[in-house]
Amino acid sequence: MVEFLQQMVNGLSLGAIYALIALGYTMVYGIILLINFAHGDIMMVGAYVGFFSITMLGSNVFVALLFAMLACAALGVLIEKIAYKPLRNSTRLAALITAIGASLFLEYVTIFFLTPQQRVFPAEAFPMHQYQIMGLYISNKDIFIVVLAVILMIMLQYIVKRTRAGKAMRAVSLDREAAMLMGISVDKTISFTFALGSALAAAAGVLIGLYYGTINPLMGIIPGLKAFVAAVLGGIGIIPGAMVGGFLMGILETMVSGYGSSMYRDAVAFGVLILILLIKPTGIFGRNDSEKV
């Protein structure tokens, strides 16, 4: 039983990271129906911004988080303007291929300027404390990661549901043309969505750096793909779905490693994706509506 609970703790911290990344995927897909492949790499850039602000500016974790989120919000908007906006009226495949291009571009520009070597995230930035509760080992990092993720998600939910910008986002996502006719600036709203999603990814990047201790230019690929699976699992385009999907994904992976074999972990993630796509492509929280001709 203790072992099972410990695995739940492990799964929740991993899931919190997936959930943060999945939110960005879901928001972007919800508004422009684009799988933003570069999202995982924006997370990587966030991790590097956090790293440099801790090591070079000597800032603390919260300031580093803030820097990373601001920088990535700007980066997300920039990528959208340069790579995606010109394609808004062409096929979705063209946009997807462009997104793959943007992803490769971020990865290898980082490698070019910062070398492919891993960097060690300074441990002093967040001193570790260990708590032992009824045989369970929980560190302040586990708690920090989950609590921060939940706070950010609540903030996001507030923005989307209660603010004018959020209302505009929902309107554009529902019907772009109609939203435009109602006087909503579609361009601004899309930019805002990219900014929000990228900021969350940046937060996830800094958290990964803190939690695992090392970062490298290709670190965004696998978590990015996993988070995408989480977003599809919860129902792509649906914000609470991404949160639940992220946590589910983290717990599922941990249980596969813990009670099966860690070697099959990645296959299980993609297996879930394919099953969902084939059985209920709209995901757990999605409504069923057929594609319009």
Binding site: N10, G11, L14, I208, Y212, T214, M255, S257
Partner: peptide, 11 residues
């Protein structure tokens, strides 16, 4: 390339 070993370590 793995980064999360906690599940297997718990086992």
């Amino acid at each position: 390339g793995d980064k999360d070993f906690k599940a297997t370590l718990t086992k």
